[in-house]
């Protein structure tokens, strides 16, 4: 039973990982690509690791998988934030269909004053 549950979690994770990578091709600019890759890939990988924990139970491999989930959830949003911020600072434009860019407006205001 545990093995069945674990394998289904691994399947769900693989599907979400696939759609996250498909988003890298489908979305128009770097910020939207980061959206899809960070959300789908983080939760997809967490789901794969949780499935591994269910298969293995309380063994060294299972506990390591649980710890990896914790570290992944803590670190991957930070990496997304750093990538997006550095892209914006080095002048990567938003997609033409974007509605507003308050960050650039505020930076201009700071530069003038």
């Amino acid at each position: 039973m545990n093995e069945f549950m674990g394998l289904s979690f691994i399947m769900i994770g693989l599907v979400f990982d696939f759609f996250g990578c498909l988003g890298l091709v489908r979305f128009p600019d770097i910020y939207n690509r980061l959206h899809s890759s960070i959300k789908c890939v983080t939760m997809g990988t967490c789901s794969i690791l949780f499935g591994l924990f269910l298969c293995k139970g309380f063994t060294p491999a299972g506990i390591k998988a649980l710890l990896c989930i914790l570290f992944l959830l803590l670190t991957s949003p930070v990496s997304a934030h750093v990538l997006a911020r550095s892209a914006h600072k080095s002048g990567v434009k938003l997609w033409e269909g974007s509605v507003c860019d308050k960050y650039a407006e505020d930076k201009e205001k700071d530069a003038i004053s």
Partner: peptide, 10 residues
Amino acid sequence: TLKPGTMTID
């Protein structure tokens, strides 16, 4: 960042 539709930049 992990919520639907949003991502923190700065």
